[in-house]
């Protein structure tokens, strides 16, 4: 098993770990962080497996994808954090309330 696969497995691990945290935690900040961990896992899978080119330079396309992905993740995180602050300002809690109906 090459190191590429090892990293990829770590990526998978991060993904599931993040998912677990997303499910288990209630605080929004933790949830946002969990999402970020998941994203990192995915990026890791993408990048790690790009290195399966025997000796030659790694495949550049996944790298570009990851850069795109990171920017997207950053943007989303920024929006999420801003939103979280607003939720907290409105409801007094940084948690998702039960669906409020009337």
């Amino acid at each position: 098993m090459s190191s590429a696969f090892l990293y990829a497995l770590v990526g998978v691990g991060l993904f599931t770990l993040g998912l677990y945290a997303l499910i288990v935690h209630t605080h929004l900040l933790r949830k946002i962080l969990a999402i970020n961990v998941m994203a990192s896992g995915v990026f890791l899978v993408l990048v790690a497996l790009a290195a399966r080119t025997q000796g030659a330079t790694p495949d550049p396309v996944p790298h570009a994808m990851v850069i795109t992905g990171i920017v997207v993740a950053v943007s989303a995180t920024a929006l999420a954090l801003a939103l979280m602050l607003r939720v907290r300002a409105e409801t007094g809690r940084a948690e998702l309330a039960e669906e409020s109906q009337e």
């Binding site: 098993m1 090459s2 590429a4 696969f5 990829a8 497995l9 998978v12 691990g13 899978v45 497996l49 790009a50 399966r52 080119t53 025997q54 030659a56 330079t57 790694p58 495949d59 550049p60 396309v61 996944p62």
Partner: peptide, 15 residues
């Protein structure tokens, strides 16, 4: 993990 490991160990992708 199993799926990842089942990938071919050599792949050049689009390089």
């Amino acid at each position: 993990g199993y799926a990842v490991l089942s990938l071919p160990s050599q792949a050049s992708g689009l390089s």
